[in-house]
Design a protein around this nucleic acid. Structure first.
Lengths: 153, 153
DNA sequence: TGAGGATAGTTGTTATAACGAATATTGTCA
DNA sequence: TGACAATATTCGTTATAACAACTATCCTCA
């Protein structure tokens, strides 16, 4: 055996290739979006929370409900919301009927900040998929749905 | 105007839906993989580095080269590699011809650790896409390639 | 009614990520 | 050659993520 022999590598399966392609594509797209919202002083997670809370108006959502709806589930919702509350983007109020629950709502400031990002984000996504036909985008959308809706083994 | 009016939300475009679906799918798959390699005491990034370095044997790679090949580019390669070197998974040596460059190689320990994960990771990916036909996987693979190879506007 | 368990959220701690500035080395060209 | 830009990596600092333990409140049912 040579000391410089290439270590045996497992064959790359189709599944493996799709896995990697999926993660790389997502990371590239997410990076661009992250950069965009960073100009408004937001992280991707914070932007995501704001959008969720706008969609949850006027009722607001409990801490857990936000976590469930997030793209990538954040295990430390409390302090994520702490920072956003400190900046006046959201407001929290403990429920009177069930005092365990803290309902979070987006503030007018949060809403107006979010509004300034709506068009730029839409434009970014248009650019990100500009080279793909609507038909192929639809197929991609369906396939991704299929990936997500798999039954856990 | 009502105080409880729903804030106006921008219409959700097809591009937007695909963006979100892509990120959610990637996150779900990545989470499972992360859990798997965590059993071996590795983070996803560390596992990724080990695979890259196995593929780069016997030459090894400079710090920057590893970063370029990673799924999600880590801006702090130095300390990521520091931790791995401390655990004996990799070894670093400054080049003599260009003393700016530090070449990193995987150690036999790193290789054997990686080897114990090969089969479990392959099995996981098989399970993750078990419900999809090879034909549809191929289409997905091609579409993702199309996403990644877009020309920057 | 009251003990045990479930649920919602918080907090402490440690490790890692993110960002920028700094160091060292090499290439370029006036 | 010697100043200046480019390249490769490291370091200092701050913010955030990850994990686990903890508090408070509510629910169930013997």
């Amino acid at each position: 055996m040579h000391s410089h022999a290439r270590p045996s590598r497992p064959p790359i399966s189709l599944e493996n290739r799709v896995f990697i392609a999926l993660l790389q594509s997502a990371d590239a797209l997410a990076q661009e979006a992250e950069q965009l919202v960073k100009a408004a002083g937001l992280t991707g997670a914070q932007y995501n929370v704001l959008r969720i809370l706008r969609g949850a108006e006027p009722k607001g959502l409990p801490c857990r409900g936000i976590g469930d709806r997030m793209i990538s589930h954040d295990p430390d919702m409390t302090r994520l919301l702490d920072r956003m509350e400190k900046r006046g983007l959201i407001i929290r109020a403990r429920q009177t009927d069930d005092r365990r629950v803290v309902k979070t709502r987006i503030t007018p400031q949060g809403l107006s900040l979010l509004k300034t990002l709506d068009q730029p984000v839409r434009d970014l996504h248009k650019r990100q998929f500009l080279h793909m036909s609507a038909a192929r985008l639809k197929i991609l959308s369906d396939l991704l749905e299929e990936v997500r809706n798999r039954k856990p083994a």
